[in-house]
């Protein structure tokens, strides 16, 4: 919630809803402050693992002409945080999967290994295939909940305080098909 938006609301609406709105912005800001202390210190992955993760996730969700990718959104650090706060079974799968990915990549490249695993995405046949699915889900979760993913890539317009909801005004959507 931007302060200018709150001020806009104050100027346009009754004061009553604004008070909790201001407080709500404070709640979010303080929650954010608690988790955004820099620099982030790796908790679970080694620097080498995290580097491989970063490279793999950037291949899955790359920077392109439209928006930055997983690397800029620091999705590998999000993954470190999530895995560190997961059970030991999950942690083992990540460690083992990354080990396989890095070993296979030594013979070719991370990109080649991901391409092979992605071919079996619908029906994973090996542990590495399964790891690709897990890796992609994490990349998706991390990227599309990041500032870059939400605002720059998806250009999400909501989470706002509107005075009215216009609904659909397109005649072509309301007529017969």
């Amino acid at each position: 919630m931007e302060r200018r938006e709150i001020l806009r609301l104050i100027s346009l609406s009754a004061i009553a809803p604004v008070i909790p709105t201001l407080a709500s912005a404070d709640v979010c800001a303080s929650a954010h402050a608690a988790i955004s202390k820099e620099p982030y210190r790796l908790r679970f992955f080694t620097p080498e693992e995290s580097k491989a993760l970063d490279e793999a996730m950037e291949i899955i969700i790359p920077a392109d002409g439209h928006s930055p990718g997983a690397h800029a959104a620091k999705v590998n650090l999000f993954a470190d945080w999530m895995v560190d706060n997961s059970g030991s079974d999950v942690q083992k799968r990540w460690r083992s999967g990354l080990l396989q990915l890095r070993e296979q990549a030594m013979k070719s490249s991370i990109g080649d290994v991901l391409a092979k695993a992605a071919a079996n995405e619908e029906h994973p046949a090996s542990e590495l295939d399964g790891f690709f699915v897990m890796l992609k889900q994490m990349a998706v979760d991390g990227y599309y909940t990041s500032e870059i993913g939400i605002h720059q890539d998806m250009q999400y317009q909501g989470n706002d305080y509107l005075l009215s909801f216009p609904g659909c005004t397109h005649p072509e959507h309301q007529g017969k098909p």
């Binding site: 008070i19 407080a23 709500s24 929650a31 999530m82």
Partner: peptide, 19 residues
């Protein structure tokens, strides 16, 4: 209290992105 609700927080403001 409504002032404590996190309804308007962005995912990246929450520890686990709200997940």
């Amino acid at each position: 209290k409504p002032t404590q609700f996190r309804s308007h927080c962005w995912p990246y403001e929450l520890p686990f992105r709200g997940l």
